[in-house]
């Protein structure tokens, strides 16, 4: 056994002393992402493939269910892509938000290490959930492309931005959920219902504008609905969506993320000492 030794006056190769804040942040998020993936992989049979099959299975079940209800009106967009877009983007948002409620509790032992801060647990969960569901999305896109021999992308930039915005919405919501539910545990019980309500207001299985006009305000305020519709539009230029507005989502994400950071930074000390 040996360890890289050095004299008292010499430079240490270990530890975080002398590293920049970004470098420390990178190492912590890298380590927590590793921990998240190991736990996810360890929970299911079949390793990483098993982890990937979970959301794919979920997608399949939703598609059978929604097809049976004849709610799969995708218009000019292929119905598989229409549902994949809604389910994947909503899952990215809701999984990040829901898993953030328990992020501190689940990583309590690892907050033992000084560089690890509560917000890092949400960042790593955002990376894991987004990565997982984006992999699923590309599998579905590839499958559709091979099976239907149909071009499934008209605006790759918009497609990627809509995914990024859905993850950012999940992240900022997750930071607020984590902070609030740790300071007021009862909030954790309420928080898990919020994504469930949003599911109906995001146009996941249907095009919201086919409903009566008076219902429109319930959908149009919701930035996640805009993300999903923009994602669908990115896959088919002919897809009709009357209200989707990229600028609206960007402004919402910036404002919500700023609020989330403000709430977190004002309470980080309490999260670490409660």
């Amino acid at each position: 056994m040996s360890i890289a030794g050095s004299s008292r006056s010499g430079k240490r190769s270990d530890g975080i002393q002398g590293l920049s804040g970004w470098k420390i942040q990178w190492r912590v998020v890298d380590a927590l992402t590793y921990r998240e993936l190991r736990t996810r992989v360890g929970e299911v049979r079949g390793g990483f493939l098993g982890v990937l099959l979970q959301p794919l299975g979920l997608l399949a079940i939703w598609m059978i269910f929604l097809s049976a209800l004849n709610l799969n009106r995708g218009g000019s967009l292929n119905v598989v892509l229409f549902l994949t877009s809604g389910i994947v983007l909503f899952s990215i948002f809701s999984h990040i938000a829901n898993r953030s409620v328990t992020a501190i509790q689940a990583n309590e032992a690892l907050l033992f290490y000084r560089p690890v801060k509560p917000i890092d647990t949400v960042i790593s969960r955002t990376i894991c959930e987004s990565g997982l569901y984006i992999c699923c999305m590309f599998i579905m896109l590839a499958g559709t492309w091979i099976y239907l021999d149909q071009v499934v992308m008209s605006d790759l930039g918009l497609f990627l931005i809509s995914l990024l915005l859905a993850a950012s919405l999940g992240f900022s919501t997750g930071v607020i959920f984590m902070t609030a539910s740790h300071l007021v545990p009862a909030f954790g019980q309420v928080a898990i219902w919020i994504p469930r309500i949003l599911w109906f207001l995001s146009g996941v299985p249907f095009r919201y504008w086919v409903f009566p006009a008076w219902t429109r305000p319930f959908f149009v305020w919701n930035p996640l609905m805009h993300c999903i519709e923009l994602n669908r539009k990115a896959m088919s230029d002919e897809y009709f969506t009357p209200d989707a507005n990229l600028n609206y989502v960007i402004v919402w994400v910036v404002v919500q993320t700023t609020i989330a950071f403000w709430i977190y930074s004002n309470n980080e000390r309490r999260l670490l000492t409660l």
């Binding site: 240490r12 912590v28 032992a109």
Partner: peptide, 30 residues
């Protein structure tokens, strides 16, 4: 550079193996 308190058996995630826990800490400190 100051260590974490040596001897306190905190800082280990129960669901991870010993190797995975060590890997986690090494990714931060090394």
């Amino acid at each position: 550079s100051i260590s974490w308190p040596v001897g306190i058996v905190g800082g280990f995630q129960g669901s991870l193996t010993g190797r995975e826990n060590v890997t986690f800490v090494s990714r931060i400190y090394a």
